[in-house]
């Protein structure tokens, strides 16, 4: 049986205590919510915290709440099952509910959280392997080694962002709430990630995600599509989140604002302004969709470190962008 290494387990009673522990122990400690990402990685010795700080139970991380300005606040500790099944969310933020529904498997969604999903470690099939396996390739840059096997000359790690909810959060222009011993702040989801397989989050390591805020659902529409080999279990090898706001005049009105996000290709989900530009000022049509898909295709540069051949993954950007945008017609 693959087993976890030994560690100290902390169950803080308050948010303040949680961030305090993390601050004091520094990199020796890691937060855990559902553990569906952290524990497998610890079993494979990809992550080796000596202290694990449970945060999923903290009160500040619970609940889905509508705020006075019509925006919505979702606690980072809610499970993906709740996120996918919540009736208000399904109505107001269907793309987010859909993304949550497409994560992993039913049992994993019962435990995995939104916060954990947003902070999900980047993935690479040279890295998501056991210690013994990685020893066979003399390890890699991201953990214990000094070469990136995906691009041997690359000074940085190219592991892939594999979260399903992050592209949607960026497309919806969500704000991420962060708390640390230094106080709290919010950052736009678009600024939360960085294109570096190792340091893939811009937040300070001791900052804890307490929740996200979603703008009021006033007229815009959004969608998410995911590509993977099987209809369940598998991480995305491509995720496209799309968001548009049209002017007055119904479905034929020109698109005023758009955001299209490319997930599971780079180390961070990437906003594609060129694709948005292809839509803006014109009504959504086969033609504009096709232009946007071309722009997305140009942008995508997948690496050979996930399932499927990278050339095919790149080719899939077009049909999948189309799929995501076609969902917004009508």
């Amino acid at each position: 049986m693959l087993r976890l290494p030994n560690f100290h387990y902390h169950v803080p009673e308050s948010l303040a205590e949680a961030v305090r522990i993390k601050k004091d122990l520094g990199p020796l400690a890691m937060f855990v919510a559902g553990g569906t990402d952290l524990y497998p990685k610890m079993k494979r010795r990809q992550q080796e915290p000596h202290h694990v700080v449970q945060i999923g139970h903290l009160e500040e991380l619970q609940g889905v709440r509508r705020l006075d300005d019509g925006s919505c606040r979702i606690g980072a500790g809610i499970t993906l099952t709740t996120l996918a099944g919540d009736t208000t969310l399904k109505r107001d933020y269907p793309a987010l509910a859909e993304a949550a529904h497409l994560v992993a498997s039913p049992q994993l969604r019962n435990v995995g959280t939104l916060g954990g999903n947003l902070c999900l470690d980047t993935r690479c099939n040279y890295y998501d392997q056991t210690y013994e396996w990685r020893k066979g390739i003399s390890f890699c840059l991201k953990k214990d080694g000094d070469t990136c096997w995906v691009a041997r000359s690359s000074p940085k790690c190219l592991a892939v962002t594999s979260t399903d909810t992050a592209p949607v959060a960026i497309a919806l222009a969500a704000e991420i709430e962060l708390v640390s011993t230094r106080g709290d702040r919010t950052v736009p989801a678009g600024d939360f990630y960085s294109n570096d397989g190792i340091r893939y989050l811009t937040k300070d390591p001791d900052e804890l995600v307490t929740g996200i805020r979603l703008p009021p659902p006033n007229g815009w529409r959004s969608s998410y599509v995911k590509l993977r080999r099987r209809g369940t279990f598998d991480f995305p090898v491509l995720g496209i989140a799309a968001w548009i706001r049209r002017g007055d005049g119904g479905t034929d009105a020109p698109v005023e604002e758009a955001r299209i996000v490319l997930g599971a290709v780079f180390s961070e989900p990437v906003l594609a302004p060129e694709a948005a530009d292809a839509l803006i000022g014109r009504p959504l049509s086969t033609e504009t969709i096709s232009d946007a898909a071309d722009a997305m295709y140009k942008l995508a540069k997948p690496m050979d470190n996930t399932d499927f051949l990278l050339s095919w993954r790149k080719e899939m950007v077009k049909p999948y962008t189309k799929k995501a945008l076609e969902k917004l017609i009508g």
């Binding site: 990199p27 080796e48 991201k142 953990k143 214990d144 190792i198 340091r199």
Partner: peptide, 19 residues
């Protein structure tokens, strides 16, 4: 810490045994 990974810290491996 300069990177998000524990392993990236130079003192990490000194202070603790490697696997």
């Amino acid at each position: 810490c300069p990177r998000n990974s524990l392993a990236a810290l130079p003192w990490f491996h000194e202070a603790l045994p490697r696997l």
